[in-house]
């Protein structure tokens, strides 16, 4: 019972008294509630039986980071450090690069600590050669933190996979 139920002069009770029998109204409301719950039984379930049934993810999904390659399997990354500079997590992306005899950039080390990544997508937005991109892969669990630090070999996609990614997302790379 509410604290004011014994007080008919209470302004909030005035409405209840005007409406008539509170008990009857209450029973009606509860019955209506039960009827609504029962309506749900013939409806289809909205849950998915993961991992047997996988969700349909959008093309823009923020999943695991990866480095795309050129169609001939050579590196696309130029080691410009743009992704490392816009990353909100300190030292998440680490890149070592030098220039070879033809002054072409050679990336010797590229590591991403996926365990600390917040999947914001900042790096993918500033990449001048559209190299660092996000995949739809979201199953990233592993047995140790060290295993989540992905090096260049883990991150790089083959030329064929990169082409498939570009075709699927309708991407025209800036530089190839």
């Amino acid at each position: 019972m509410s604290n004011h139920s014994h007080d008919a002069q209470h302004p909030l009770n005035a409405i209840e008294h005007a409406e008539g029998n509170v008990v009857l109204e209450g029973i009606k409301a509860i019955a209506q509630g039960f009827a609504t719950v029962l309506k749900h039984h013939p409806r289809e379930a909205v849950t998915l039986e993961y991992p047997e049934v996988m969700p349909e993810l959008s093309d823009r999904f923020h999943g695991r980071l990866s480095l795309l390659s050129k169609s001939d399997d050579t590196d696309l990354c130029i080691g410009c450090q743009a992704c490392a500079r816009v990353c909100p997590c300190d030292d998440l992306i680490q890149i070592d690069m030098h220039r070879d005899d033809d002054k072409k950039p050679v990336v010797t080390r590229f590591t991403i600590d996926m365990g600390r990544c917040i999947f914001c997508g900042n790096c993918t937005e500033v990449c001048p050669v559209d190299c660092i991109k996000m995949l739809s892969d979201f199953e990233l669990a592993d047995y140790s933190r060290e295993a989540l630090v992905l090096d260049k070999k883990d991150l790089t996609l083959s030329g064929q996979e990169s082409d498939e990614w570009r075709a699927k997302r309708g991407y025209t790379p800036t530089v190839l």
């Binding site: 509410s2 004011h4 409301a29 509860i30 009827a35």
Partner: peptide, 20 residues
């Protein structure tokens, strides 16, 4: 509408919220 059918006029909800 379904949410409201379950909750809004429910006497228990009204007792616990009205005037508090």
């Amino acid at each position: 509408d379904e949410y409201e059918a379950v909750a809004t006029k429910n006497p228990i909800l009204m007792d616990r919220t009205k005037g508090h």
